[in-house]
Design a binder for these strands. Structure first.
Lengths: 108, 108
DNA sequence: TTATTATATGAACACTTATTCATATAAGTC
DNA sequence: GACTTATATGAATAAGTGTTCATATAATAA
């Protein structure tokens, strides 16, 4: 655990290119309503592709494409169970960002 | 100030359309490297358009367009001083999201 | 093996978006 | 007034994105 004081040695100069890329990629991932809905559902519980499809009224293809997107960014993980594949969140930092944003949007 | 306990009555069911729109708009705003750089600079200190242009090596037009975008979402505010217009952040929630994301990107 | 079920994938398309260029507006100076 | 400086804006363009359709893959059951 870090100490409580803000880190005064850390300045706010220009961000390096890699950080900029990671941060923008992360926010882009959260910048689409479909992906938000999927992540919000997965936050509740692990789901198979078909469950996501059904619950959110999205085509199987759309869900699969978006899950690939989220998987590439390591925002979700998956496990196989027979012919089904169950997805769940895999980045607690990003999920925390999402929940904060949702909370603010609901209460402001 | 709210109490410390997580709100157990709040469930994670489907988000309403308005919340979904606000959240996705917010994250879209943070999903572009140029806007991230601008907000990160403004976090340090209030800047005129030309200062942003110079510091970030962006055209005046690009900066102006992006500031309009951020202004429309009420993420920045501005004040006039002669012919210059000084911009600064206007949404501490969103700035907090940005700082968190940057922090995570730098340290993971 | 064949058939079925669940998921993934590639191509096409419509739509969105970030930047540039040219120009407009607005305040200050002479 | 004319001129300069700072910023805003509209149109055009190139690049990116989300969905759909058709099809492929993979596991299972018969």
């Amino acid at each position: 655990m870090d100490n409580e004081r803000p880190n005064l040695t850390e300045d706010d100069t220009e961000l390096d290119e890699e950080t900029l890329f990671i941060v923008s990629q992360t926010f882009k991932a959260l910048g689409d309503p479909t992906r938000i809905r999927i992540l919000n559902l997965l936050a509740e519980r692990e789901c198979a592709v078909s469950e996501i499809s059904d619950k959110l009224h999205l085509s199987q293809s759309t869900v699969s494409h978006q899950l690939r997107f989220l998987k590439n960014l390591r925002l979700v993980k998956f496990r196989r169970a027979g012919t089904s594949i169950y997805y769940s969140p895999d980045d607690q930092h990003v999920m925390a960002l999402l929940h904060q944003a949702i909370h603010h949007a609901c209460h402001d």
